[in-house]
Amino acid sequence: MRVAAIVADACRELLYRKTLWVYFGIVTLVLLFFALALRTDVADGLIASLSVMGLEGEGSAGSFRLGGGAEGGMGGLTAARFVRGVQLGAAFFLYPLGILLSVFATASLVPRMLERGTIDLLLSKPVTRPTLFASRYLGGLLAAGAGLIYLVSGLGAILGLKTGVWNGGFLLSGLVMALYFGCLLCFMALVGVLFRSTTITTMITALVFFVSLLARWPHENRDWPLLITSRVWRFAAQGLVEGLYHLFPRTYEFGQMAASLIMDEGAIAWGPILGSLFSGAAALAAAVLYFARKDF
């Protein structure tokens, strides 16, 4: 009951601040667009005809464009290929937007809890500090993750009903991105408890995001250290890059994995994902430990 109360309150708090409503609103517009404007005719797994807001589509096996006229035909475009393409496009724009707005919405989750007058009251209740902190984290994750799940379930269902293609990979990609946000939220929780500032939490989260993207290139290209002649500096630079790469969530790999799941292409690289989960769990554990010992 206590955990449920804290989780529900964290969700209510985030929804009250309206940032997440903006995301829900944008996703709803996208869903309405596909629900009302898209017309498809599927035969034997191939798109026979397609129109968006009255504009007829013209396609080939690998792509399609609008405004080609009905006589152009769909050139053997499969419904599965079309659905995956649309979902990949939606994911390309709406996943980063969802993560961005979720960061803005949840950056204040921990600093607000630690405000004087709020934390005193919460800590006076029969709830242990780790439970309190972890429940609030969970509430933030659920509220932010709900936006992504709304997108994938809504768009997946609309396209499924219109084409008969039900792409489970799209749903999984939404869960993977929610998992990515969960890892990012662990770092936000740690920064939030250390600095008690929404602004600093947002800034450092942005830093984590970009550093995790930037650190991937030198991590993948192993020959660059040879450019550094000093052995000490070479090891230091390599150590720094590897440290940063393994310390933060692997943003690029999560994105790639989401795309692979949507397009049903290639094997999934679980290493970076599990590594991110581990570093996120370590950040959350450090945050809980610090919170549990802190004087307020």
Binding site: D9, R12, E13, Y16, R116, G117, T118, D120, L121, S124
Partner: peptide, 11 residues
């Protein structure tokens, strides 16, 4: 417990 300058969730 009633703390001094207590704050309740504004929502």
């Amino acid at each position: 417990y009633l703390p001094e300058n207590h704050r309740y969730p504004p929502h």
